[in-house]
């Protein structure tokens, strides 16, 4: 699989996939998409990167250990639910905040934070699995 064409084109594909994954995640509340799908797309991107430039290099490119990303995602999702406790509502009651930026309105909400948490968990976990399995390469019993 390690052809020169693949190695050349892989970073490009990976970049597009990562951007696309974030887009899919963020639009998920109103159109097909969401944290689960976005996370899977991003994880696939990392898997492709790992195949192309090697898992060690892919890990370096990520800067953060993927499992740490996943852990942060769980934390973020739980935290988004905790926010509602400050308003005196039950755990995980959603809070919406519409920011008016000139022409457009940007909705910020706790479900969105939650969805980003889901994204990070799925992305981190599956990227870690993929890189872990690739990293084991060459090691025969």
């Amino acid at each position: 699989m390690n052809t020169i064409i693949f190695r050349t084109i892989a970073p490009l594909i990976v970049a597009i996939m990562l951007v696309f994954s974030v887009y899919v995640c963020l639009r998920g509340h109103n159109e097909p998409g969401g944290g689960f799908i976005g996370g899977l797309i991003a994880a696939s991107a990392i898997a492709i990167l790992g195949t192309a430039i090697g898992p060690a290099a892919a890990r370096r490119a990520l800067h953060i250990d993927p499992m740490n990303i996943a852990g942060f995602g769980v934390f973020m999702a739980a935290f988004s639910g905790l926010l509602s406790l400050f308003t005196g509502s039950p755990f995980m009651t959603s809070i919406w905040l519409y920011l008016n930026l000139g022409d457009t309105t940007v909705p910020l909400s706790t479900p969105m934070v939650f969805d980003i948490g889901v994204f990070l968990v799925v992305f981190g976990t599956i990227a870690a699995i993929a890189l872990g399995l690739e990293g084991d390469g060459g090691e025969r019993s």
Binding site: G34, L40, I126, G132
Partner: peptide
């Protein structure tokens, strides 16, 4: 089903390893 697919995949990976 959406969550079932993802969890099923995590489970599958675990069993595979």
């Amino acid at each position: 089903i959406l969550t079932a697919i993802v969890i099923g995949f995590a489970m599958f990976s675990f069993l595979l390893v």
